[in-house]
Structures are given as C-alpha cells and as structure tokens.
Design a protein around this nucleic acid. Structure first.
Lengths: 156, 156
DNA sequence: TCGGTAAATTTCAGACTTGAAATTTCTCAC
DNA sequence: GTGAGAAATTTCAAGTCTGAAATTTACCGA
C-alpha cells in the first residue's frame, strides 16, 4: 500500500458518503424553501399538510394525513389546529363515525396553496436545474430502491 | 392525445418528483436511525453534534459547529448544553478570546460516540444495500451538483 | 484613550416533532 | 344488550429548531 494509487473506498464507506450527501441536499433545500415560503406567510410543515389536502378535495382523516406525511399523529393535530385557526383548513364531521373527522382545505386555503404550489415548482426546478433527464431518472430509480428499511430489521 | 402513449413528464415535473423522493428517503432513514439511537440513549441531533466533535479532537467553536451542521446558533447552544449536562462534551476556555469557547468530547463522550458510530455505519450500509458502486457514484455525483442554491436567488 | 463597529455566543418566543398516555367511539362475540 | 378490545384522535412532556434581540468581548481608527 505504499504506491501512489488512490484507494477505492469500500462500498460501506461509499454508502455512508451518499447518506451524508442526501442529508446535506435535503437540509439545504429545505432551508431555501423555508425562507421563500415565509414570504407567503407559511412554513414547510404547513405547506406539506396543505399539499396533502390539495390531493384530497373530499377531505382526509387525521390518521391518513399522518401516514401520507410520515409524521406522528400528535404533530398532525397541532398543524391542523393552526391551519384551522388561520382559516386555511377545516375539520368536517363524518356521518358514520364520531371518532374521526375529515380535514379539507377551505376555499381560502385552496387559493393560498395554489399560489404557493406554483412558486414552489419553480423553486425546485431552479434548485435542481443542473440535473438533466437522465440524471433524474437514475436518481429517482435509485431512491425507489433505497432506503430498504427491512434490511435494517436485524441489525444490532 | 387520445392514443395510448404515456406522456414523457416534463423536466420540471421530474425534478419535483426527485425532490419528493429525496424527502421521503431522508425522513424514512432518519426515523429508522432515531429508534436505533434510542437504544444507545441518544438522539439524531446529539449524534450529529458528537460526530462533528469527533472530527475535531482539538475542539470546535460554537459558530463552527453551527456551520458544520447547518443548524442555527441557538440550536447548537441548547444541544451542547444537554451534552455537557450528560458529561459527554465540555466547553473549554480559549486563551486569547473570552467571547468564544471550544467544545470538545469528553473521554466518556468519545467512547459513547465510537460505539454509536460503528453501529451507525452498519445501519446505513444495510439501509442502502440495494445500491451498488455504480449507483452510488452516480447519485453522489448528482448530489454534488444539486441543489444549486444560487439558481434560486432570482426566483419570486 | 475613546468610540464605534464587528464578532461570538446566549437568550427568548414561537413553532415543530416525537412517543406515550389518555379519551372517546366503534365493533363484535356472546 | 353488554363488555372486551380495537381504532381514531387528542393531550402532554420533553426535546429540537429557527430567527431576532440582547449580551459580552474584540478590534480599530481618530
């Protein structure tokens, strides 16, 4: 090992490197989105909830939102509380089941989301403008296979 | 458009799709890491701070940590406070400058981190085991070019 | 030396987040 | 019907996070 060759990093080190890159990319992008959403009077978590609701015009149950957004139920309660206080979303009673309610955007919420969503798409397009169609396809394909959480189950 | 052809998504839509995949991948991985770190009596933010400190045996200033971890200064203060309360890190006075202090792992902190870091590498290796060397190289290369935050500067 | 400005950190309010416990309601076997 | 258990949500404590204001100390030109 005293020659000048550059050692090939082990697969394991390379996977760790990818993980750190993923973390950096997401944190930087989130930071950029946060400052821009603030100009629209919103935040990233609120935008995420509104995006989920926009895909469910008929309304979504709290548990459904929790699964869609991959955040805890207690968190969804607080986020919807605040959106409701701002008149952007509302809880509607479900006829057959008094345990749950359907959350839906109000007309004001739908309008606010439409404006943000359009701007958001432009921001993402700009942030990832250095990636072409082939880059995108390959990275999306990779992220569809990883992380594989089942492989983690029998780790220490 | 009434034929059976599948429309090629626009580049812009494909970039949005990648962003959503990145977000999902990072959130799922973080969730898996969180539950495992709990068995070591730690959390993700604390692990991140300790990892940064482990790369600076001579100690790191608070502002330096803030930049390394890409989190706000106020946050670093709170995290280091808690690590210090647990005896895992300590603030050391800087001879020439009474404004700042150097934060370093204690021996106990270094030991605790070493154990966690070894397990952590195994978890990441497992989570991304479905990606081979070529996948990793391409994805890392892509993430080295994106996001490009300068491109965002003149967006609305 | 004396100000003024810059730098490093802390403090603070408010929002976000989790996981566990508590609450309410539903379902279904008996 | 009734009681056990499941399901949906809320509540709560503790930790994480940001951005702005406050504090302390350093530097530097007049």
């Amino acid at each position: 090992m005293m020659d000048g060759a550059v050692a090939t990093p082990t697969l394991s080190k390379q996977r760790l490197r990818l993980w750190l890159r993923l973390l950096r990319a997401v944190r930087e992008t989130e930071g950029a989105l946060r400052v821009r959403l603030k100009d629209h009077g919103s935040t990233l978590p609120r935008f995420d909830v509104m995006a989920a609701l926009a895909r469910r015009p008929e309304g979504a149950a709290m548990g459904e939102l929790s699964r869609m957004l991959r955040v805890s139920g207690g968190n969804v309660t607080a986020l919807v509380d605040r959106l409701e206080a701002d008149g952007l979303a509302e809880r509607r009673a479900v006829p057959g089941d008094r345990r749950s309610s359907l959350v839906a955007l109000t007309p004001a919420g739908a309008d606010a989301f439409a404006a943000m969503a359009e701007a958001h798409e432009g921001w993402i397009d700009a942030a990832f403008s250095s990636l072409d169609a082939e880059d995108l396809d390959r990275m999306i394909a990779g992220l569809d296979r990883a992380p594989d959480l089942r492989r983690l189950e029998d780790c220490t």
